[in-house]
Write a protein that binds this DNA or RNA. Structure first.
Lengths: 209, 209
DNA sequence: CGTCCAGAAGCGACAAAATCGCATTAAGGT
DNA sequence: ACCTTAATGCGATTTTGTCGCTTCTGGACG
């Protein structure tokens, strides 16, 4: 999942990884992310710098791994009794966490040292899992639900776009607005148009042109 | 616009900047972005490394500047006679350029070495300008038009989110689908709900918690 | 048109980092 | 208990990044 080869999941490798991650977390607190260096992390973690260079390549990839860990949601979305309430609450919390200075920093780090997109994909998967949990509960209640993809396009994507690309401040009202629009779309557009709002179903495994 | 101080827009500074940018573009072609180093760029550009370190800080910020330049749209969106056609065409081209391997690389670079978000904001401004141009023409034709913010949230944001966070391939059909949904929303939702789909109007100047 | 001045680049010494080969350790399987 | 091999440790070497100082030059001002 995290570092490059990780062919040996247990024992010393695991200890080294944990110790290095812990060192990063501590040092980010103490000296700030900009002052971090690989040798510094190595010393704190009690390993030699070459170990870090070999396993992570450079500081960015290491920071990316740590960032993804911190972006993993700790708790399931709250159950407030209705799809609308659950989504509102989840979106507000999501926006809060992501738009905070540290959240922004983690997102940037996660994207930054991630040549193959694995870590970024993991972030997106976290959000999708949370949304799925909310939707699954709504289905059990018998509520009509939109597709996960619709919510990602209409709620998650705009939030992330604004965080990454725009200097605009975000507040909870914006999150609720996005949820409102998404649910409105689901309610009215379902069947109203031939094509759905969700994702293009992949056909091949190869991205790109 | 691009480098840090740029207090002196003309003369030698300008020549150095252009020469360095050109060196980056050439070397990216020749040796690939991963193999780039500051000393290498300096040699090719005919300047000393310390000049680059002083003006750009590090390779990432330099690459970010170059990336933003390349992400600037060269042409105005085509006029195909209707809002729908113009938006379809623009969105398809936008997706094409951004989702291509080099487009993805530029986006990442632009975000990467951009501590204060200036370059990212510039990218977002480019897209907004293009959309505004399309909308302005539609207004002249007498067509009803959605707000720019709606199109950014509904078309630009989902595309960028998928490019940055998801391994899914994107195609022109997806771009058209997003446009369809956005126009549908504009047509039906206008006045149907108390709150509009557009941006939260800022109240204070301070982001964040 | 000449002079001055501050910002910017050049240069070189130094400090810090990243890389690499080789020796050593220890998981995980047999 | 042994064997294989990934993973780490260590140190020499190369490369990159920093810093103080000097030199150059664009632009303003007289």
């Amino acid at each position: 999942m995290s570092p490059r080869p990780m062919v040996r999941p247990g024992g010393r490798s695991a200890r080294v990884q944990e110790s290095v991650h812990a060192a990063v977390r501590e040092l980010v607190e103490e000296v700030g992310r900009d002052a971090l260096t690989v040798p510094m992390v190595a010393t704190r973690a009690g390993v030699t710098p070459s170990t870090i260079y070999r396993r992570w390549g450079d500081l960015q990839e290491l920071l990316s791994d740590v960032a993804v860990e911190r972006l993993r949601p700790e708790t399931d979305p709250a159950d407030l009794g209705s799809l609308r309430a659950d989504l509102d609450a989840w979106a507000e919390q999501f926006l809060d966490e992501m738009a905070s200075p540290s959240g922004r920093a983690y997102i940037r780090d996660a994207l930054l040292g991630d040549p193959d997109g694995t870590n970024a994909g993991q972030c997106s998967a976290y959000a999708a899992e949370q949304i799925d949990a909310v939707l699954a509960r709504a289905v059990q209640r018998g509520e009509p639900v939109p597709e996960t993809e619709l919510l990602i396009d209409r709620v998650v994507a705009p939030i992330m776009y604004r965080i990454l690309f725009r200097p605009v401040p975000l507040d909870a009202a914006y999150a609720r607005e996005l949820v409102t629009n998404a649910l409105y779309a689901q309610q009215f557009e379902a069947g109203a148009r031939p094509t759905r709002a969700a994702a293009p179903r992949r056909s091949n495994g190869k991205p790109e042109n």
